[in-house]
Design a protein around this nucleic acid. Structure first.
Lengths: 241, 241
DNA sequence: ACCTGAACACCGTTCAAGT
DNA sequence: ACCTGAACACCGTTCAAGT
């Protein structure tokens, strides 16, 4: 059909590499081993090409990292949120969708913290959030405040929650931290002592046993509801004045 | 006095390097050039020693990064918070002190996102936060939820706010992001278009001009008040039931 | 036009060898 | 006992040279 020998029919069709394929493979490396394990030589090897060939498809490693952020935020399900008429419900739907994706990609936070990531998919999400907040009654000076509070909470909460997944580096260091909590002076730290070992597991990212998959123990929704309650009340207070 | 020649009197007293000095210098390098600029060879050079000599004082670069986190959190002023009788006021005081420090050390977030950081100073701060939240009426299952919401907000908000400071890497990439916002379709993104250029500057970390020092334009306090309002209301609701 | 190997200027960490 | 240089196994990126 395409001129290749019948013996080669089932082989990969030798199509040229494109930028999207490089980004996908880079994402896989980050997903499997963290941001530090994304390096150009193994990336090229995984794609069956030479390191220098990558630089005709992709300008730099920095570019690649931002492209991965866009790829992951592209997985955030926004169509169900769009159907919700109530703006508060829409924003909660969006937040949950973001949290779901960020929990599935815990290593993304390493990139988020060290790069500016204004990309098509993050812009798309921001527009939905701003629309919802305005419909909730927030306006000019407070609208930006509310957006910053919302995004800080969603990203920050997910980042702290995602940390346990990255338990690979330096076991000795983690053991030292855990011992610090276990040998804490109960007189100086009464509440922490009382809440151990729960607090190590669910707040400090030092689980004593590996998380079972699906078991997040997350209080994301609780805090989100609290924040949005407060935002709505704060706006009402102002419009009443 | 100490046997050294008078010509050497004003020179550094040749005291042996200790771990604390290494951590301090490492912190300076991170502060000045970001986490990526902390490398062992220049660190050794700045301390006037050999790279390999550092490894007798400090176990690894990872250890050094966690030590820097502890050093910075050690700067968080907690004594004024301790004086506040009202638990809500005490938590607000603590949060503000944390925000102040984190804004002064924007590069710390690169470390926070990729490491577990349970250290003496972060434990000290957590104990104060837990005490305040319990005195605000939160208890067993909700206490941890509330702590996670609070810490996610404080760290996450500060992280997003700190990003503009790291504008060093890849000007071309940042220009591409800014162009994306400037050439946005107003039909598809009405609110973002309306809020430009303010939204690029104050929400997305793409300031059109460098920040004047002291000018944070931060809505940290606004969002914190909203969150704590919501947390307090949520607890009241439960105890009434 | 497309891809390569080799090179440049770096990394973190170790260790035999010096004093 | 303390410190060093050199080495090991890596980095991101460039570029002359090949097909």
């Amino acid at each position: 059909m395409n001129g290749s020998h019948w013996l080669l029919e089932r082989e990969q069709p030798r199509r040229r590499l494109d930028a999207h394929t490089v980004v996908s493979q880079a994402h896989i490396l980050v997903h499997e081993g963290g941001a530090a394990s994304l390096t150009m030589r193994p990336l090229a090897a995984a794609l069956g090409t030479s390191t220098s060939a990558l630089y005709r498809l992709v300008p730099s490693k920095q570019w690649l990292l931002v492209a991965i952020v866009d790829l992951v935020f592209g997985e955030v399900e926004t169509s169900t949120a769009a159907d919700v008429g109530d703006p508060r419900g829409r924003l909660e739907q969006l937040s949950t969708a973001m949290h779901d994706v960020l929990v599935l990609h815990p290593h993304l936070h390493e990139i988020l913290a060290s790069h500016v990531w204004v990309t098509p998919n993050t812009i798309r999400i921001a527009e939905i959030a701003f629309t919802s907040l305005r419909e909730m009654g927030l306006d000019d000076p407070e609208l930006l405040d509310a957006y910053n509070a919302w995004s800080g909470y969603v990203i920050g909460f997910s980042a702290i929650e995602a940390k346990p997944a990255e338990n690979a580096p330096d076991r000795a260091l983690q053991r030292a931290m855990r011992r610090q909590l276990e040998e804490m002076d109960p007189g100086a730290f009464p509440i922490l002592t009382e809440l151990m070992p729960d607090v190590a597991d669910r707040a400090f990212g030092l689980p004593s046993r590996p998380r079972r998959s699906g078991e997040s123990g997350s209080s994301f929704a609780w805090g989100l509801a609290a924040l949005l309650d407060g935002v709505a009340a704060r706006k009402r207070r102002r419009s009443r004045a």
